[in-house]
Nucleic acid binder design. Structure first.
Lengths: 210, 210
DNA sequence: CGAAGAGTTGATCCAAGTCAAACGTTGTGG
DNA sequence: CCACAACGTTTGACTTGGATCAACTCTTCG
């Protein structure tokens, strides 16, 4: 269990465990010397944290965004894992491969898309991961515990820019924001803005690991 | 075998094979509607291309930068792979995990670093992957088949900016460029520029797969 | 109620993009 | 061996998207 704002581990720290998220939202991030922060990834139930091969030193920090439950898997030797639990090894490969695809899509977005495109991309990707993979319609409202500053740090922008563009999207009736929920109203047009091709919709589920 | 400039596969194409690079440099990339290109990853001997679980549709294209040799592994079912060749499954997990770490470091760089920092980061990372992992000193000259435009597309910049900053680095005596070779002359200062922490130096080798 | 955090808005600035021209370098074919 | 074409690099002038700075408002919650 982690409270919101609590860290699972810090960049540079030794972290050999291998966890999966059972419940809650977390994010991994890096801090720079001048205080800038880049959020690397959002972690939802079913995602893995850490490496099964046990990286000596964490390359990023991980923090809980909402109260979160994690399952720490017993640390086996690699060989044990692969030979005694081959289905676990397969699932690990799948999950980490999904994360890699997603990460590379983010590289493309950060490298070559405008602020407007990045934000559209972010919204659609989030809906895909949360709604579509759980069988809900894309337009279903999703919880939004991220502040605008979090979104900015995720997309390599500033909170001011995020605020302005979310405002635009709202007046263009592309999205609706109420309380801490976000709803996509016009996925087609959002997809057109950012050239989203609905490929990136694979996600994980927590049940698979239990 | 692939000639330089030749594509192994294209984004959106079906590609179920699972290859490893034996020789040469390749890169994966995405194109946007207006012709912009983002290079996602550089692939060196020892890296894997594609997924062992066979992604239905490739999320990016892969092109050879230099004449390249690839080893296409026979496509086994996942279970076969994990149970009959557990050491292969482990190696796959390691490699793909390394790629993920590297990709996330790039997200941080693209999201929060200046052009100068990104280029310094790129140079050091390249040297680490090529020299350090092969036991050579960091300062050893490395081949540089990438054009400045390639580097720009890798870092989310323009060729003009890359040209200007490489020029700066040269006059500051941080690097030396001769023909198609690049040599780092002052790794310390480059590391200071981009807050490089030498963590990201794990790499793969081709031999391990044979 | 009051304080702290988050969101909104306007004014200004700058790093990097864009456009354009000139200069090198490489390779090919007459 | 030269010519010239294709491609890459370099440099200068100008533009711009998003950052920065700063004030103000709106929530939330003890």
């Amino acid at each position: 269990m982690l409270h919101s704002g609590e860290n699972l581990f810090w960049e540079g720290e030794r972290f050999d465990s291998f966890c999966t998220v059972l419940d809650g939202w977390l994010f991994s991030y890096r801090l720079f010397g001048d205080g800038r922060r880049q959020i690397l990834n959002l972690l939802f139930p079913g995602d893995v944290v850490g490496s099964w091969i046990g990286e000596a030193v964490a390359h990023c920090s991980v923090q809980a965004l909402t109260p979160s439950k994690l399952c720490v898997l017993p640390q086996l030797s690699q060989m044990d894992l692969a030979t005694r639990f081959p289905e676990l090894a397969i699932r690990y490969g799948e999950t980490i491969h999904n994360q890699l695809v997603r990460s590379e899509c983010r590289v493309a977005s950060l490298g070559r898309q405008s602020a407007r495109q990045r934000i559209a991309h972010f919204i659609l990707d989030l809906c895909c991961r949360l709604n579509v993979s759980h069988g809900k319609p894309l337009q279903a409202a999703i919880p939004m515990p991220l502040t605008q500053e979090d979104i900015a740090d995720f997309l390599g922008l500033t909170n001011v820019t995020v605020c302005r563009i979310l405002g635009d999207f709202r007046t263009e009736n592309l999205i609706r924001i109420a309380g801490h929920e976000l709803q996509v109203r016009d996925p087609e047009q959002l997809a057109e803005i950012c050239e989203y091709d609905w490929l990136e919709c694979s996600s994980a589920s927590a049940e698979a690991w239990i």
